[in-house]
């Protein structure tokens, strides 16, 4: 474990806590894409299959349980909670996320480290995580009003990915037996690039102390 990875995991945790706080306290999910949340739940379910078979560390297991629990409960809140679901913007959250799932699965069948059930699903979860934010970014483009919590949510998610790239660089240079992880790195870099545009407008609006609005 290194500081970049720990900071990355904590930032990822923060993004989810921000979202749960928004839903639990102000009972609203305005500006949040249910499609993205469903994709994240699928990412965690397909990636953490090994939670019962492989024990890496207590930290690892606790975090997996937290990510699984929170991502599934966020989807539940947005779908079934009588108050929260009313603020779900289903007219604008129309990105057909099924078009993301199938290509990621096919790609995972072709490009993977090992053609086993678990490894293919793990690779699928990597590819899916890379594109999972797209429905959310599309929704933000459509609904101009990005409230603070939503902006912070996307910002923390992007920061977690940036920190993970620093973690890979750090491990590559310090950890002797750390192997090249082409698939993980490529997928992670693509995912982080998707945030680059958002980061630019987020930081610019923060500097100018004005409301964040993304160009059409």
């Amino acid at each position: 474990m290194n500081i970049f990875r720990l900071a990355g995991d904590m930032t990822h945790l923060m993004s989810i806590v921000v979202l749960l706080l928004k839903m639990h306290t102000i009972k609203s999910c305005a500006g949040i894409s249910l499609k993205t949340q469903e994709l994240y739940a699928l990412v965690f379910i397909t990636r953490y299959l090994d939670i019962f078979t492989d024990f890496v560390s207590l930290y690892n297991t606790v975090m997996k349980i937290f990510f699984l629990g929170t991502s599934i409960s966020i989807v539940w809140y947005m779908r079934y909670h009588k108050v929260v679901k009313q603020s779900y913007d289903k007219d604008h959250d129309t990105f057909r996320h099924y078009f993301l799932i199938l290509p990621c699965f096919l790609l995972a069948l072709i490009i993977n480290d090992e053609f086993t059930f678990r490894e293919v699903l793990w690779t699928f979860s990597l590819y899916l995580e890379a594109v999972a934010i797209i429905p959310q970014l599309v929704l933000l483009q459509r609904t101009k009003n990005i409230d603070n919590l939503t902006g912070n949510y996307v910002f923390f998610l992007g920061a977690y990915r940036g920190l993970y790239i620093l973690n890979w660089i750090y491990r590559y240079f310090t950890d002797s037996h750390y192997r090249r992880k082409g698939i993980t790195w490529t997928s992670g870099i693509v995912q982080t690039l998707l945030y680059a545009d958002f980061f630019y407008y987020y930081i610019r609006s923060w500097r100018r102390n004005e409301r964040l609005n993304l160009p059409a």
Binding site: R5, D9, H12, D50, D54, V56, N60, M63, K64, F67, D113, E114, E119, W122, Y164, N167, H177, Y178, R179, K181, T184
Partner: peptide, 10 residues
């Protein structure tokens, strides 16, 4: 072995 080293990250 490769796999568990591969999957030590979240």
């Amino acid at each position: 072995p490769a796999t568990e080293e591969n999957h030590d990250e979240l």
